[in-house]
Design a protein around this nucleic acid. Structure first.
Lengths: 346, 346
DNA sequence: TGGAAATCTGAAAACGATTTCCGAAACTTT
DNA sequence: AAAGTTTCGGAAATCGTTTTCAGATTTCCA
């Protein structure tokens, strides 16, 4: 039905030439009002919609952008996606979403797929552990790209939106130290994952700043699965001395950590202080509510979309290449108490 | 770079004709091994990938399917999506994801967008409140479509994957009644939403079956926002007599309900029994763990993908039109106790 | 009123593949 | 050696648009 009407049908129906139809419908100059109205009437009558494929082929523009994620089932990512997609949609772009299922080796294949689909732009939020091949790929194919929480890539049209993880992790560590904790554990995502690196570095530096010697057995790294995070958390909590506080970097990690703490019968906010990254429903509804490092996911997505669209529009003009968005430490009951050791020692 | 190599370049590089390249690369009969290897070598050397747009235009097939959701930030939906997308990807399909942001009026526009992109198939999981226009649209454009948890649509190539909400809601009601509850509240999603209708009907029928007269003020319906669910839950809990048990239909509703219960200082599993739909991380980690009606979201997504792919392949052959997947009542501490009223009255 | 300029319009060439048709080789078979 | 079969090249049509080019018409001004 609606598929059938072509520009030729419209032209025939309006008794004008094909090119006139194109001009009239695309608001070209030098087209009379009479012809224009005749054409749009015919077009409406036939419910004509330009065929996307032919249109894009000729224009060399698909008006669609590719979105690569590690997993859309991650609520943080899906929230970012939703925000970005809305901004893109209002600008006439459709987005094809590809998930690498957190498998680093699939990463590059996904990018290839997207590139072969001739997307006009790319948003990459995948958490590849060894990002080098995909970085090179992005650099070589000159597709405008917005990187989410990744190390910036050199390139005329490559942008990055980051979150200031460091400052809030630092605040979190100092907050815990202030409350008397000295054995502060850290569980991060994969070590090659950029936010993990930033958070871990901030964790180490803040410890040093507080005069606490870092102990490697207090830091662990898990893949992006709850079971793995659970296992690592369990391992960490078996450590002697047992950490009295825990910083978990990521919501999936948080899930696994909470399972482990419940498994070990440790009560959050009494036996152990907890700080998580990203404020999701769980952190607010959990009893006690858990202290989080919050960031505006909506803003993150919107900013990525904005940067990308700018990059597509001014091909190669001067714009900000990398934007760092603020984060915020929200202290809740899970960490807002004084550590026992403060008294036993003191 | 990779964009540049066309089929002509490959033909020239392999010193063969354009048509031979096409034949060789598409595994046509009557092409010698020698020529074939020569062509694929040249293709690899030039990193040739057939231009998606030209290819699709000629073949009349985009090898991409459109996925319409109400909101991908909903963890249930994103899990279903992830499963479906994986199945589709392994079959060579890319998926463009569109969110209607739970706005019924955007629904039809999203479908139009997808159709204008000439997708080969459609998966619809949007929660439109007045689905009639979109139903008609799906029927008219003859695009193979898989409906997720929606009322089936008549059509040669329209399929539906549903969940057996009724039987588990019935079990849940009887379970609560057995534990002595007589004032059982119900909070559902929008009234036009198919799963809501099914769950609500099962709730009413089960009450009748247990000899409990239904009371309309115990059932409330919220839109797909936590704030609205929160408000409805508050209203419900102000009811006299206060319900001693609550069935919340949907994970967003659950969030709002939990907020309301905490706001009213009601302890789940003691002051009020709680049954939720869909087993998400929150329901498992909440203290006490909350009783849920569980379903295999992965299977749901995979089944939708399978049905759709079959529908695309055997254009119009006989296959199952609608599949109903089982659900399961998982009783946890939030509801696994005897109601006080049992004693005060008895 | 004549001619330059502005405005309209249609035919045809792209875009990059697939596909068809035909004919020329090369090879096999009888 | 004639006939038949396979393999491949070349040219051209097709998919449905946009865009260029040039011709046709009108408008404008001296």
């Amino acid at each position: 039905m609606s598929q059938k009407a072509t520009i030729h049908d419209v032209a025939h129906h309006a008794r004008v030439s094909v090119s006139s139809v194109s001009r009239a419908l695309n608001n070209y100059p030098h087209v009379s009002e009479a012809l224009k109205t005749r054409v749009v009437e015919a077009a409406e009558e036939l419910d004509y919609q330009p065929a996307f494929l032919a249109h894009s082929l000729r224009r060399g523009e698909t008006n669609s952008i590719g979105f690569l994620v590690g997993s859309i089932a991650n609520p943080v990512i899906s929230t970012i996606y939703e925000a970005a997609a809305e901004a893109l949609a209002t600008n006439g772009y459709a987005v094809t979403l590809v998930s690498s299922r957190n498998q680093a080796d699939l990463d590059i294949a996904c990018l290839r797929l997207l590139a072969s689909r001739q997307v006009s732009g790319l948003i990459v939020s995948s958490a590849s552990e060894s990002p080098e091949p995909s970085r090179r790929f992005i650099q070589e194919t000159n597709i405008p790209t917005a990187l989410l929480d990744r190390e910036p890539v050199d390139g005329e049209r490559v942008f990055a939106v980051q979150s200031d993880h460091e400052s809030s992790v630092r605040k979190a560590v100092l907050h815990l130290v202030e409350n008397g904790h000295r054995n502060i554990g850290f569980i991060g995502g994969p070590q090659g994952f950029y936010p993990t690196q930033q958070r871990f570095r901030a964790y180490q530096e803040a410890l040093a700043e507080a005069g606490i010697p870092p102990r490697s057995e207090l830091a662990r790294f898990a893949s992006f699965t709850e079971t793995d995070a659970f296992a690592e958390a369990l391992l960490l909590m078996r450590n002697r001395p047992q950490p009295s506080a825990l910083i978990v970097a990521g919501n999936i990690i948080l899930i696994g950590a909470l399972q482990a703490l419940q498994d070990r019968q440790l009560t959050v906010g009494r036996d152990i202080a907890l700080v998580a990254c990203d404020d999701i429903h769980l952190t607010q509804l959990y009893r006690p509510p858990v202290t989080v490092i919050r960031r505006d996911l909506n803003l993150l997505g919107k900013t990525a979309a904005r940067l990308l669209l700018q990059g597509i529009a001014n091909n190669g003009n001067r714009t900000d290449r990398v934007i760092k968005l603020p984060t915020q430490l929200v202290i809740r009951e899970s960490s807002d108490y004084l550590c026992d050791e403060l008294f036993t020692r003191g």
